[in-house]
Design a protein around this nucleic acid. Structure first.
Length: 347
DNA sequence: TCTGGGGTCCTAGGACCC
DNA sequence: TCTGGGGTCCTAGGACCC
């Protein structure tokens, strides 16, 4: 057995070739969709393996690119920074590590506007993680951190030292195993280029707590219309719809329904939103916000379309298509459902 | 540093089917 | 006819991330 073959039996620590790039526009301003799209294109010039992390970040696997450019990951990160600044005036913070989780953590591990590399060897990874609070670990939020602290597991080092079965007893089999892996710096998720969103949502917040069912339905109509437009523009259909109602005391109720067939049409979305809302029977409820989420998104082309023989249906879809074209030309606010505007605006 | 809007994923129970 | 196990789908809710 050759030395090389023996070494292969122990998995190599992944080389630090994953970049987590977090862009910032000047003065804490939001990045803007067009700028963000341009920055993603810029990253794609460096490596084809780019995964968008909206609204202002991305993961990049540069293993192949280092050979092509004859530069290490840090050199490529520097190249990205220079180009982003030159073209968009956007600075960025970059973390470089062997997997997405560690790259994220490296990016967040200091002031913005820097490139930080975490070497791939296990000792360096363990040293990086050991002293960090549990909540610094990806996937550990306030609730989980609180639970862990009651078992004396306040740092990543202590979690890493805890036996797997103990973590599984505390958090359940799946979450326990994942925490165990993450505490050891293991994150098997790949950088997935071109990943599309699985859901799309929109929320309407009322100026005052809303008791009027009609005004809530008008808000739902506007949300369904906007959501439908977004889906059709991106060539997607949804399998179902979820309504979330947020009340004055901060509590929420969710109700969801699966469509008979996947759809992106405003009338179907609206009817389902109304049905979900009306089924809640919110007499005298103080509603602070309503939100709709289109779930189970898929390509519109792959959806079996049941032919409709209802001429009214056909007409509604032609109108919808015309509205979509008008919005594409004149902007999203150009045309809206009249009922969503309220009575005065319609007159 | 905080907030909030838009996302992801998981769990768990019930329905339904084989 | 009854029982039961195992999938899968649906629904509601919770936790978390950027």
């Amino acid at each position: 057995m050759s030395a090389r073959a023996r070494l292969a039996a122990v998995p190599d620590p992944p080389a630090p070739t994953v970049l987590y790039v977090h862009f910032h526009a000047g003065a804490g301003a939001p990045l803007g969709e067009e700028t963000y799209d341009g920055l993603l294109v810029l990253l794609a010039e460096v490596s084809p393996v780019v995964q968008a992390v909206p609204p202002d970040a991305a993961l990049v696997e540069v293993r192949g690119a280092t050979r092509y450019f004859g530069q290490g990951p840090a050199g490529l990160a520097a190249l990205v920074r220079v180009r982003a600044l030159a073209r968009y005036g956007a600075d960025c913070t970059v973390g470089i590590a062997g997997n997405p989780m560690l790259a994220r953590m490296a990016a967040h591990d200091g002031p913005p506007g820097a490139v930080r590399t975490l070497p791939g060897d296990p000792a360096a990874v363990a040293a990086f993680l050991a002293g960090k609070p549990a909540a610094a670990l990806y996937g550990v939020g306030p609730a989980t951190a609180r639970t862990l602290s009651t078992y004396g597991l306040g740092t990543v080092g202590r979690i890493a030292a805890a036996p797997l079965p103990a973590l599984q007893r505390i958090l359940g089999p799946v979450a326990g195993r994942r925490l165990h892996e993450r505490a050891h710096g293991i994150d098997p998720t790949p950088v997935t280029p071109g990943a599309r969103a699985r859901s799309a949502a929109a929320e309407h917040r009322f100026e005052r707590d809303e008791l009027d069912a009609d005004r809530r339905r008008r808000a739902l109509l506007a949300l369904a219309d906007g959501l439908g437009g977004r889906l059709r523009e991106s060539g997607q259909v949804a399998r179902g719809l979820t309504l979330t109602v947020r009340y004055a005391d901060g509590s929420v109720t969710t109700r969801s329904r699966t469509f008979a067939e996947p759809t992106a049409h405003t009338p179907e979305l609206t009817a389902t939103a109304y049905a979900l809302h009306d089924a809640l029977g919110l007499q005298r409820a103080r509603v602070r916000a309503v939100a709709l989420r289109a779930e189970g998104l898929g390509e519109a082309g792959s959806a079996a379309h049941q032919l409709s023989f209802d001429p009214a249906d056909e007409k509604a879809r032609r109108i919808e298509a015309a509205v979509d074209r008008a919005r594409a030309r004149f902007g999203p606010g150009a045309v809206g459902p009249a009922a969503a505007l309220g009575r005065r605006a319609v007159a």
